[in-house]
Design a protein around this nucleic acid. Structure first.
Length: 442
RNA sequence: GCGUCGGUGGUAGAGCGGUCAAUUACAACAGACUGUAAAUCUGUCGCCUUCGGGCUACGUAGGUUCAAAUCCUACCCGACGCA
C-alpha cells in the first residue's frame, strides 16, 4: 500500500514550478502549499478548529521535542499524534535534523535558517564543543547525535533508526530522514564530510522505515488493537515489538533530505544521491544565505525526480515562497508566520507591520485591507495593539490567525496563478506592493 | 500644636560626601525573528553635541566642603504617633 500519491496537474512553462495534488491517508494537499508548524503537537496559540477554519492544509510537528516531552511512546499509546492533538488532517514530522544545527553550532549564536555569510565573525574556524563559553547542546558523531535536553539537561542519543522509530510512534503521514543541517559558515571540508554523513543516515533511515512499514503490512490488523487490560491473559509473543512499531495502521511516507550548503557541486551531488534512493518525496534542507536560496533550490530541483514531491524546509518569507514555487518546490513550512505573530508583527499587502507601534493605537482600520481572515473581518488594528500592549493572550491568537491565513492563502494564490497562466504577473504585483517600503527607504 | 519617619528621572524604588545623569524593575519608543531553546531577544530611554564633551538635575531656598542626591538650617508637602 502506498502512503502517498502525488499527481502533477500543471507545470509553469519554462520553469521548474508546478501545481499538483498530494494524497495522504488523512486527506489531500493541493500543492504548492504552506505547512504550518506545530512543533510540540500544537500550533502555538491556535486550536485545530481555528486552523481548519482558516484553511490550513497540513501541520508539521517535531520529533525531537515530542520525544523529550511527553515522549513518543506515550503519544503512540494515546493513539498517535493525530488523535492526541485532535488534528485529523495531513500531518508531517521533522526528524530532529534541524536541532542538530540549532542546538549545535548555532546554539547561543546569531545563526539561523537564513544568515549573512558576509559576517566574518560567524565563520566557524575550528570545531570545539564549547565556543565563546557557550556549551553546545548537540554534538555530531558518525553514528548519530548526542543531545543535551534543553528542558532538563539530560543526555540523549539520536540515530537515524531512533528518529524513524520515534516518527513511527508519532504516526504522521509524512516523515523525514534524519539529517545534519549545516551552517553556511562551515568550511568546505566539513560540508563535504557532513554531506556524506547525511547520505549515510538517509540510507539507514530508509532501511529502518521500510522495515517498519513491512511489519505494518504483514501483521494482521487484529494485532494493532491495543488490549485494554494491561497484562491480561499472558502476553502474545511479538506483541511488544509489533505494538511498538505499528500502533498506526495507515502507511507513512518518508522524505529524504538534500543538503550541501552553498556549494553547487555538493548540492548537485546530494540531489543525485538522495534523489536516487527510494524515498516518497524530498526535503531541501540547510541554512541559507538569502541570496543563495533560489539558486540552491534550482540546482537541486533540476536533478530530483520530477514525479515526487519536494519540500523546502523552514522557509516562509513571501519573497522566498515565490522563488521556491518558481523553482519547483511543492511544500514549505516555516515558524515565521506564527512566531512573528506572537511578537506583534503582522503581514500586510504593503509589507510587515509591528502592531504594537504607537501609530496603531488609534488606528481603527483592519490589519490588512481586503483580507478575509477572521481577525481582519472582526477586529481593528487598535484592538490588536491594545491586546499586545496589555499582553493579553488573545493578541497572539488573532495575530497568528491572520499571519497563517495570509501566508497559506498567498501560496494558494500562487497555485491558482499557475493554473491561470499569470504567475509572474501575480508575483510582480504582489512583491511591488509588499516590498515597496523597503525599496523607497534605501 | 508637638514628635517621628519620609520627599530621587513617566511610575515603583536603590543610592546616603567624590568612581552619579544616578543600580534595578516596570512603562514608553524602536528593532530583530525563516525544518520553534522563543507569548522571546536586542537597542534607546534629562537636554545639547563637531560624540571629545558641554549644560541642567535627586521637594524649595540657603549654608558647610576642594567636592553634596548624600551633611547642616529654614520652609513647603506627605504618612504615622501623641495631644
Amino acid at each position: 500500500m502506498k502512503a502517498i500519491n502525488f499527481k502533477i496537474e500543471k507545470k509553469l512553462e519554462g520553469f521548474l514550478g508546478r501545481v499538483g495534488e498530494l494524497s495522504t491517508p488523512h486527506g489531500v494537499i493541493l500543492t504548492p502549499s504552506f505547512v504550518v508548524v506545530g512543533t510540540k503537537g500544537t500550533v502555538k496559540s491556535l486550536t485545530p478548529s481555528q486552523l481548519k477554519e482558516l484553511g490550513t492544509p497540513v501541520v508539521l510537528a517535531n520529533t525531537y521535542h515530542l520525544y523529550l516531552q511527553p515522549g513518543d511512546e506515550l503519544i503512540r499509546d494515546a493513539g498517535g499524534l493525530h488523535k492526541f492533538m485532535n488534528w485529523d488532517g495531513p500531518m508531517m514530522t521533522d526528524s530532529g535534523g534541524f536541532q542538530v544545527f540549532s542546538l549545535g553550532v548555532a546554539y547561543g549564536k546569531e545563526l539561523s535558517k537564513v544568515v549573512s555569510v558576509t559576517d566574518p565573525s560567524l565563520l566557524i574556524s575550528e570545531r570545539s564543543v564549547v565556543e565563546d563559553g557557550v556549551p553546545r547542546l548537540a554534538t555530531v558523531g558518525n553514528d548519530g547525535v548526542s543531545f543535551r535536553s534543553h528542558i532538563d539537561g539530560s543526555l540523549h542519543y539520536i540515530t537515524p533508526e531512533k528518529s524513524i522509530e520515534i516518527q513511527h510512534n508519532l504516526g504522521a503521514d509524512i516523515i523525514f530522514a534524519f539529517d545534519e543541517c549545516t551552517s553556511p559558515t562551515e568550511n568546505d571540508r566539513y560540508q563535504d564530510e557532513a554531506l556524506s554523513r547525511t547520505h549515510a543516515w538517509a540510507k539507514r533511515s530508509l532501511i529502518e522505515h521500510k522495515k517498519r512499514e513491512l511489519i505494518k503490512e504483514t501483521t494482521p490488523a487484529i494485532l494493532f488493537e491495543r488490549s485494554s487490560d494491561e497484562g491480561g491473559r499472558g502476553a502474545r509473543p511479538f506483541q511488544k515489538e509489533q505494538r511498538a512499531s505499528s500502533q498506526n495502521t495507515f502507511p507513512q511516507a518518508l522524505f529524504g533530505i538534500v543538503q550541501g550548503g552553498r556549494s553547487k557541486e555538493l548540492r548537485q551531488k546530494s540531489a543525485e544521491a538522495i534523489g536516487s534512493m527510494d524515498f516518497d518525496g524530498f526535503g531541501i534542507g540547510g541554512s541559507f544565505a538569502k541570496e543563495d536560496m533560489s539558486s540552491a533550490v534550482k540546482w537541486v530541483n533540476e536533478i530530483l525526480p520530477e514525479e515526487k514531491p519536494r519540500h523546502l524546509l523552514g522557509i516562509g518569507e513571501p519573497e522566498d515562497l515565490f522563488s521556491g514555487v518558481e523553482n519547483g518546490v511543492d511544500l514549505f513550512d516555516c515558524v515565521g508566520p506564527t512566531r512573528i505573530a506572537r511578537n506583534g508583527t503582522l503581514f500586510t499587502e504593503n509589507g510587515k507591520i509591528n502592531i504594537s507601534n504607537a501609530k496603531f493605537v488609534k488606528d481603527f482600520g483592519s490589519v490588512d485591507n481586503g483580507c478575509e481572515c477572521y481577525t481582519c473581518k472582526n477586529y481593528t488594528r487598535s484592538y490588536l495593539s491594545h491586546l499586545f500592549r496589555a499582553k493579553e493572550m488573545l493578541g497572539a491568537t488573532l495575530a497568528s490567525i491572520h499571519n497563517v491565513y495570509f501566508i497559506t492563502n498567498l501560496v494558494k494564490k500562487m497555485r491558482q496563478s499557475i493554473l491561470d497562466n499569470n504567475f509572474f504577473e501575480f508575483k510582480k504585483e504582489f512583491l511591488d506592493s509588499y516590498l515597496k517600503d523597503n525599496n523607497i527607504e534605501e
